[in-house]
Amino acid sequence: MTTRAEPGDDRSGPDLSAIMSERRRLINLGYRLLGSLADAEDVVQETYARWYAMSARERQAVESPGAWLTTVAGRICLNLLGSARARRETYVGDWIPEPLPEPSEWITGRSGAGGVDPADRVTLDESVTMAFLVVLDSMTPAERVAFVLHDVFRYPFGEVAAIVGRTPAACRQLASSARRRVRTAQSPAGPGTGQAAVVRRFKAAWETKDIDALIGLLDPDATATADGGGLAVTHPRPLVGGERIARHYAEIARLSGDRTTFLEYTVNGLPGLVARHDGTIATVFAFEIAGDRIRRIWAVRNPEKLRPWRIG
């Protein structure tokens, strides 16, 4: 966010760089809490707006500006998570978190210009894999905030309590409950290089419409979920079963013909695929792989969720 100093305004004072240096951490927090880069950016904008809405004396009285900004951003996210459940009831089809490319590959979707402020880049680690974000999305808002703040960002429960509005003991219980959800949902994933090989073989089998090869790469109980948000054609409900998914994806390849190409890309820090149709990115695919088989596929087609993507 760019702030403009007015005559007599102390925004350009000695604390400005320290305040603005918190932006990247707030973006990272917001994305993990909301699963949406666009929403995370809005939260950060609102957080800074509230900071500069205070008088200079009020800002100077804040002992730890970083803690203040985190508290405000966390509370805004908590409120948004509560209202998100109601919004999801009217969302067309399944909702999938917004996928992210490697930071060096994305562009800003708001200005349309090439490149993005490094402060807006989300750090990709195990806490932003698609599988992890989907588990986070199954939690209650309070569970999610308590867990992310404590287990991912290492905030003590006393500080988490001030954000969530519960006692430290209650926040400890919320994080423990969330931790159990994560353990239950986790699958034994192989090394990154092994996952890349599985995705590469899946891509090759898909391009050649080799149904037998696709079936062999999919777990018999695999699930494929698509998110078009009513703005792109998708299968309306998750596809369950490796053979069913293989046949459906082979049909997609047949109908797409030569107009669609599949490219290997990192999606939320793990090997994934991007489908480019007539030169435009149409779908981003994220995978959960257990051993040498694909357990989950998430296909994001909602164009509003693909704005950070480009093909170099």
Rank of each mutant, 00 (worst) to 15 (best):
residue 2 T to F: 08
residue 3 T to R: 01
residue 7 P to F: 14
residue 10 D to Y: 11
residue 17 S to L: 13
residue 19 I to P: 02
residue 21 S to Y: 08
residue 28 N to T: 05
residue 28 N to M: 02
residue 29 L to S: 02
residue 29 L to M: 11
residue 30 G to L: 02
residue 40 A to Q: 10
residue 42 D to R: 12
residue 44 V to G: 02
residue 45 Q to R: 15
residue 48 Y to P: 01
residue 53 A to T: 09
residue 54 M to R: 15
residue 54 M to K: 14
residue 58 E to C: 03
residue 65 P to Q: 05
residue 71 T to F: 10
residue 73 A to P: 13
residue 74 G to E: 04
residue 74 G to T: 07
residue 76 I to E: 04
residue 77 C to K: 07
residue 77 C to Q: 06
residue 82 G to V: 07
residue 84 A to C: 02
residue 87 R to S: 07
residue 90 T to F: 05
residue 92 V to G: 03
residue 94 D to W: 14
residue 96 I to A: 04
residue 97 P to N: 08
residue 98 E to S: 12
residue 100 L to V: 05
residue 101 P to V: 06
residue 102 E to D: 14
residue 114 G to K: 14
residue 126 E to Q: 14
residue 126 E to T: 09
residue 128 V to K: 02
residue 128 V to Y: 14
residue 129 T to E: 07
residue 137 D to S: 13
residue 139 M to E: 08
residue 141 P to F: 15
residue 142 A to Q: 14
residue 145 V to Q: 12
residue 147 F to I: 07
residue 167 T to Y: 00
residue 170 A to G: 00
residue 172 R to A: 15
residue 178 A to T: 06
residue 180 R to N: 04
residue 182 V to A: 03
residue 182 V to H: 05
residue 183 R to F: 09
residue 184 T to D: 05
residue 185 A to V: 07
residue 189 A to L: 03
residue 190 G to Q: 07
residue 191 P to T: 11
residue 195 Q to H: 01
residue 197 A to R: 10
residue 202 F to C: 06
residue 204 A to I: 13
residue 209 K to T: 12
residue 211 I to R: 11
residue 216 G to L: 08
residue 217 L to H: 06
residue 220 P to H: 04
residue 221 D to R: 09
residue 225 T to E: 05
residue 236 P to W: 02
residue 240 V to L: 10
residue 243 E to V: 09
residue 258 D to K: 12
residue 259 R to I: 03
residue 267 V to K: 06
residue 272 G to W: 13
residue 273 L to E: 04
residue 279 G to Q: 01
residue 279 G to A: 03
residue 280 T to N: 11
residue 287 F to Y: 12
residue 288 E to L: 14
residue 288 E to T: 15
residue 289 I to D: 00
residue 290 A to L: 08
residue 290 A to V: 13
residue 297 I to K: 09
residue 302 N to I: 02
residue 303 P to F: 01
residue 307 R to S: 10
residue 307 R to I: 06
residue 307 R to W: 12
residue 310 R to S: 12
residue 312 G to K: 00
